[in-house]
């Protein structure tokens, strides 16, 4: 037995969402059909509203609501001279939670991954270079993921930003706070040793 075309269309649309297979799509569709009308309408309205009001920031490609630029780019209290480069908008939320960063952002909208066909043209690298050229930027912090694609993206950015004479830094990589050294994997621990910080330079004490 097959479903009526309306139900099938709903299942197919849901099935195109990431992480939702045909079986999950069917489950969600039936949940919506059984649910009270308000619930289904609230979901549909949320989707329509989000699509209408939210766009990408013209400057940093973060999500932005109500205007060409996002709330962070519009905020005059943010430091203009430091730009933190991230892969996706979600990463901004993670960095904002640290409350350690008061500069601005730039979202690449992906990571360098040749095997998936993602290269410099698919990333917002050109836009970053334009910003470095036009704005008063002194430092670019590369905060891409510490995995293969993220590291490759970092080296790609260095390649293109080097001639522009801007300071480029990379976020450190190391052990999770509250963890035990003995359970750390050797790669992370190795990186932590590589990026160690000076506690005391070892100069002889005076007197």
């Amino acid at each position: 037995m097959s479903y009526s075309s309306t139900v099938q269309e709903l299942i197919d649309s849901l099935g195109r969402l990431p992480g939702i297979g045909p079986k999950s799509a069917q489950r969600v569709a039936f949940h919506l059909l059984k649910a009270p009308p308000e619930e289904a309408l609230r979901l549909s309205r949320a989707i329509v509203d989000a699509k209408e009001r939210v766009s990408f920031c013209a400057r940093c490609f973060n999500l932005s609501e109500g205007g060409d630029e996002c709330a962070i780019c519009r905020d005059p209290r943010r430091e203009e001279r430091i730009v933190c480069v991230v892969e996706d908008s979600q990463d901004i939320v993670a960095i904002e939670r640290t409350q350690e960063f008061r500069g601005r952002y730039h979202v690449l909208q992906g990571a360098f991954s040749p095997i998936d066909g993602v290269g410099v043209e698919q990333l917002r690298v050109k836009e970053l270079m334009t910003r470095v050229g036009e704005e008063d930027i002194e430092e670019v912090i590369v905060a891409t993921n510490p995995n293969l694609e993220g590291e490759a993206t970092a080296s790609l950015l260095v390649k293109y930003l080097k001639p522009m004479g801007v300071r480029v830094t990379r976020i450190a990589s190391g052990l999770p706070v509250g963890g035990d050294l003995e359970y750390a994997d050797e790669l992370t621990l190795g990186r932590a040793l590589e990026g160690r910080q000076v506690l005391d330079a070892g100069t002889p004490a005076d007197g």
């Binding site: 040749p114 095997i115 410099v120 043209e121 690298v125």
Partner: peptide, 12 residues
């Protein structure tokens, strides 16, 4: 090959 196409890219 997708990787090869990416190799030939430039940012502008």
């Amino acid at each position: 090959l997708r990787s090869v196409a990416v190799l030939e890219q430039n940012p502008r």
